[in-house]
Write a protein that binds this DNA or RNA. Structure first.
Length: 227
DNA sequence: CACCAGGCAAGTA
DNA sequence: TACTTGCATGGT
């Protein structure tokens, strides 16, 4: 199904804000830790947790696998759900060593479908976290469907409330070239839109997308401001 | 005080 | 398959 607005929205957002330089992490390990820590949690709290890990030289999976559980929960406490997330991180580190010789290079040598299936088999890694890792650490052309993306699509009448994750992902895959750089920027732009604009102005007056919504009857300005 | 924030697993019907 | 519940901190 063709939905040209998907491409147009990206172009308008990119023209308005430009490159977003995501994911904010220096290494794949830091990226993957952030992906777990940010689950249902404000990014500002994740930054505190990552800062604690960095201060203690624990932004790598070998250190994290061997450190005491109480150390780890203490460091990531600000990110919430710290008992669960500590287990997820410990399990990730152990799996990486047991099945991939502790090498992220070996993990990311897997082809995209195999790597996605592998990540989804890890405790604490669901579709959103897996796809974040695929896109931002693995540079694969996989679109991330998170709470911001759902709100964005829903507000613009491009999906229903109960649309499945895979159907939302297909909406992007079917209307964009499979370019990881494009997927990267688009998702980051959607998050920025949700964070700093639509959050404070749900009606989206002055929103970078208002003009597009006005010109396209299939989108409809009425739905533009809907929840 | 309530409500939310870049989810997921486990249990139930 | 389609709900429901627990997990937890910090900001508004």
């Amino acid at each position: 199904m063709k939905t040209p607005a998907i491409q147009r929205f990206h172009d308008a957002l990119f023209a308005h804000w430009g490159e977003q330089h995501w994911w904010p992490a220096r290494t794949r390990a830091e990226m993957m830790l952030g992906a777990i820590l940010t689950q249902n949690t404000a990014w500002t709290n994740v930054e505190k947790a990552l800062s604690n890990l960095r201060k203690n030289g624990a932004l790598n999976l070998r250190t994290l696998e061997n450190c005491p559980q109480e150390k780890l929960t203490g460091w990531i406490r600000p990110a919430g759900y710290f008992n669960q997330k500590a287990d997820y991180i410990k399990a990730m580190a152990a799996t990486l060593r047991n099945r991939f010789d502790g090498s992220l290079d070996r993990l990311f040598a897997l082809d995209t479908p195999t790597l996605r299936h592998e990540l989804l088999s890890w405790k604490g890694i669901g579709p959103e976290t897996a796809d974040s890792i695929l896109l931002y650490a693995g540079k694969r052309p996989v679109f991330v469907i998170d709470a911001y993306t759902r709100r964005f699509l829903s507000r613009h009448g491009l999906c229903g409330e109960k649309t499945r994750y895979d159907d939302l992902a297909r909406l992007f895959a079917d209307n964009l070239p499979a370019d990881p750089r494009l997927f990267n920027e688009y998702h980051a732009l959607i998050v920025r839109l949700g964070k700093e604009h639509c959050k404070t102005k749900p009606e989206c007056t002055g929103c970078p997308l208002e003009g597009i919504a006005r010109k396209n009857p299939d989108i409809g300005l009425a739905k533009h401001g809907a929840v």
